[in-house]
């Protein structure tokens, strides 16, 4: 290499560094831009907007400080909604994660044949739209012409007079069962993936030490899938906090607000009643729950 070639060389290297930086920027920008515009800015605006009174026209913002939050905590329907979210979270953990663990254990160790057939059937509702599922169940549970009423009449089982979704004391529990119908297969598959990661040697060694059946499940299976179950619980909890479609399409939060959840109540306040600022304050409550749980899920997932 002759000395007079060197400056040229450096120029080329400089150009390379610049173009590499530019390439980095070009590759990053679309993802960052979309997330900023549609996730971070709206989240910030929801927090800011919760301190204002905003009419349906959006033009007249009036600063009210924490008044919206005071109203939220004195609003009986907000507490009904929060209680319903809690019912769905706890109930879904029991039914979906509990049922999913049971089904996955049977699939993993119990069934010598046809396990793929069972897995496919039980997982299938996961790919069906929640609105479609809600409508199918609305038909089945129809108090006059529904298949369940007809079937129960044959057996002589008493039915709620107002219908499974029409009775304010029962409706939320019916929604819980429909949710379990939809998502238990998902939990089963999630936990099955964890079970299949357990080494067979572990079971053989334990069998030599006399641990079989329930004991093996308790001392080997459960500890080995602890993290997967934790992730399943977190996914279910986040799903229960965010639930919207199923409630909206079955009961719209009724009868008499008895199945209202945070998601449907935000929608009602914002888009039916026009209380945008108030809806923002409820949204912030939802956001706080979701961010804490989402963070926990990511941490648990990384360790798994």
């Amino acid at each position: 290499m002759t000395p007079d070639n060197r400056p040229n060389d450096r120029q080329q290297r400089d150009r390379r560094v610049v173009s590499s930086r530019l390439a980095t920027l070009l590759l990053l920008l679309p993802a960052l831009g979309l997330c900023a515009v549609f996730i971070f800015i709206p989240a910030t605006l929801a927090i800011a907007g919760s301190l204002f009174e905003i009419g349906i026209s959006f033009s007249n913002w009036r600063f009210v400080g924490f008044d919206n939050y005071v109203r939220v905590f004195n609003d009986a329907v907000f507490w009904i909604a929060l209680r319903n979210n809690l019912i769905i979270v706890v109930g879904s953990i029991v039914l979906q994660v509990g049922g999913g663990t049971l089904l996955a254990t049977l699939l993993d160790r119990g069934l010598p044949r046809y396990s793929t057939v069972y897995r496919t059937i039980i997982f299938a509702p996961m790919v069906i739209s929640t609105v479609a599922i809600a409508l199918i169940w609305l038909m089945i549970l129809d108090p006059n012409t529904g298949a369940l009423v007809a079937a129960m009449r044959v057996v002589g089982f008493p039915m709620p007079r107002l219908g499974w979704l029409g009775d304010p004391n029962i409706a939320i529990w019916t929604i819980l069962v429909i949710a379990a119908w939809q998502y238990t297969g998902f939990m089963m598959v999630l936990i099955l993936a964890g079970l299949q990661g357990i080494s067979r040697d572990l079971y053989e060694a334990a069998a030599l030490d006399g641990a079989k059946g329930m004991r093996a499940f308790w001392y080997i299976t459960l500890p080995s899938i602890r993290n997967v179950v934790l992730v399943a619980i977190l996914i279910t909890t986040i799903g229960g906090i965010k639930v919207f479609d199923l409630v909206f399409a079955t009961t719209q939060g009724g009868p008499a607000n008895s199945t209202q959840v945070l998601g449907t109540y935000i929608y009602l306040q914002a888009f039916n009643l026009g209380n945008m600022g108030y809806a923002n304050a409820i949204s912030v409550v939802l956001l706080v729950f979701a961010v804490i749980l989402g963070w926990a899920q990511l941490r648990a997932t990384r360790r798994a």
């Binding site: 935000i266 979701a290 989402g294 990511l298």
Partner: peptide, 27 residues
């Protein structure tokens, strides 16, 4: 840091930002 920022977006549910999102899209 940028990676963590994008990951943080995972925790924000769309139900919690319906009002501002609607206002922005509408505007």
């Amino acid at each position: 840091l940028i990676y963590l920022l994008i990951v943080a977006g995972f925790a924000v549910p769309v139900q919690a930002v319906l009002v501002p999102l609607f206002q922005m899209i509408s505007a």
